[in-house]
Design a protein around this nucleic acid. Structure first.
Lengths: 339, 339
DNA sequence: ACGGCCTTGACAACCGATTGCCATTCTCTG
DNA sequence: CAGAGAATGGCAATCGGTTGTCAAGGCCGT
């Protein structure tokens, strides 16, 4: 067979290379994937031909025959929540570095969308990273049994997880408020199905008890700035002088609402957020909040998932990874009103 | 052949269904994809079996044999830039509604990453949506010739595009500043390779000329809040009393820097941003900026792409779509210093 | 110089669908 | 009732790779 002209239209396949080199397609496959199995001279000829034909493997075909897709699903409840930006960027960078493709899906805060997405991904992805799952424990454990999974901010038995350790910073935040003279504090809760919110509230109420401070729980509120208005009104009505808020989105919304109502922050009310999202540093006043390395959390989640996928490649696979959190004090907290 | 037990482990295939119904696999394929070609009784038996086995087609296999992948790539220069959040959400929603999967890629503001991603996507996606491309016209037109493409905020001959019409709001912004008494204005430019920035500057300088106002150009600056510091310093040094800034990210960074330097906004300097991103309404002071329906732009881009993919399904496929823009006045603009 | 082991590379089955082509059956018409 | 034509469904090739199996050949030691 003579040298095939480079078909201008369609990308080259291993068959083109095989024809060009006068070997079988399978030899080409091996030469490229498993170089030791092929004579060095043949291999070099093949590699040269591949380069010449500008060959790139067809990922669909590869996926079909090998069972591995080279894709990882990343599920977040709401793409427009800035908290997930950094997470997504972390997963994206790490996945790309490992040669994987990221399939990003917004589950719209819905457990049904999440479940159906997981079912679909089961065939089209090698694994998934699920952030802030809205699924119940059973459904989540079930899904994790069917395909490699790492959760973020969700702790279920048997499912590897990356946890942003905001709860452990709760006592710190409370002490900060106490030192400013606050004795009446509210926790502004997130979605009822959010395990993060429950964990944060648990840590806060425990800390409050050991310090003899009254902390009440408000909510639930949707994690959006718009919810901040209702949250602010509830906080004012409850008579507290400081709030620790489920996340910065709600906290920023509260800031706006309090300003509208003519209340000053922090003179009349102190606000502490969680997550230190984009915007927390330039809102008015800048938000005191709990910071943690979110992008790194994304990278760690990917590493844990890849460790599951390639059990060989070193690294004992931890089943949980905790990201440290600390309080970042800015302008939204101050001395309690002297009344 | 007896009824096969539902293999608990592995998802069902058309062969399982075929065996269960006693027909050939191809008949199953037809019954599901092209119902008219199959007798209604057979079809119903097959559909029932499919439902019972909880069958979902393997997208890899489907892609391989049909050539269509059911995926669309979405390329953005920087995932963490809030401007793209809404765009991404728009594309995601519309793609999902049409049964497509979104492949989101962050090209890291790099033309090389963009080019290689495009080449890779050529095999694994049916089309791409490229936002704020960093590629030169030739390379982009070339890529568009190889696969269906829609650009956002990038106008190249022969490539369908969605344009956010910020330039047309430039005169409005300038008039707003003029009415406040400003006579010396700077345009704070974005990346040199950004066509958006060039178009905005062009519109602004034209408007300035027709109004007899002096407008100078500063920059280029990277589209990040951190660049705002340098931009602010340059603006102060140039002696202008108002800035129209390439985007809100830089504008917000400028706000922070000006505050650090003890300059008041808008008393000492007025700032106008572009895009009305998340945060523009709650920064300090709230940012006067050019707003437009970004999420809708994403949806429109998807519609235009799908029109290319399925030429049949009605709708003359426009090659350009312009999204309206208007000035949103907030607190960052005010009367020129009386000096 | 011969037997056995290891290396090398070809063949072919397979992954799960799609689709062109053909054979059979059914229906309608003349 | 025969024949034309449509409806129906099966066979097998195909997409682009991966991978198990095996034959041929080279090298070694004895």
């Amino acid at each position: 067979m003579a040298t095939q002209p480079v078909a201008a239209g369609r990308p080259a396949t291993i068959h083109d290379i095989a024809a060009l080199c006068g070997v079988a397609a399978s030899t080409v496959s091996r030469a490229l994937a498993n170089p030791d199995r092929v004579n060095i001279r043949t291999r070099e000829r093949i590699q040269a031909a591949a380069a010449e034909l500008n060959y790139t493997p067809n990922s669909q075909a590869k996926a079909l025959s090998s069972g591995r897709t080279g894709a990882v699903g990343v599920l977040v409840p709401d793409i427009t929540n800035p908290f997930y930006f950094d997470l997504i960027r972390g997963t994206q960078l790490q996945l790309k570095a490992a040669g994987y493709t990221q399939l990003l899906v917004d589950t719209e805060e819905s457990d049904e969308v999440e479940a159906s997405t997981l079912e679909q991904l089961r065939k089209s992805a090698d694994g998934v990273i699920v952030a802030a799952s809205r699924l119940n424990d059973e459904a989540l454990a079930d899904a994790a049994a069917r395909m490699p999974m790492v959760t973020v901010n969700r702790d279920v038995d048997g499912v590897p997880a990356v946890l942003i350790d905001t709860p452990s910073a709760m006592p710190q935040a409370l002490d900060h408020l106490i030192s400013l003279g606050h004795t009446s504090v509210a926790y502004v809760g997130g979605p009822a199905v959010s395990q993060s919110s429950a964990r944060r509230w648990g840590a806060l109420s425990a800390a409050a008890e050991s310090r003899g401070v009254e902390v009440r729980s408000l909510g639930p509120f949707a994690p959006k700035t718009q919810s901040g208005a209702a949250a602010a009104d509830a906080a004012v009505h409850s008579g507290v002088t400081a709030c620790i808020v489920f996340n910065d989105l709600i906290a920023i919304g509260m800031l706006q609402r309090l300003r509208e109502r003519g209340l000053r922050v922090p003179e009349d009310m102190s606000i502490v957020g969680c997550d230190d999202i984009f915007g927390a540093d330039f809102c008015n006043p800048p938000l005191t909040t709990m910071s943690s390395p979110i992008e790194q959390a994304g990278r760690v989640a990917v590493s844990m998932l890849l460790a599951q996928l390639n059990p060989l490649a070193g690294g004992g696979n931890r089943s949980r990874s905790i990201m440290p959190t600390h309080l970042t004090v800015r302008g939204s907290t101050g001395a309690a009103p002297s009344v």
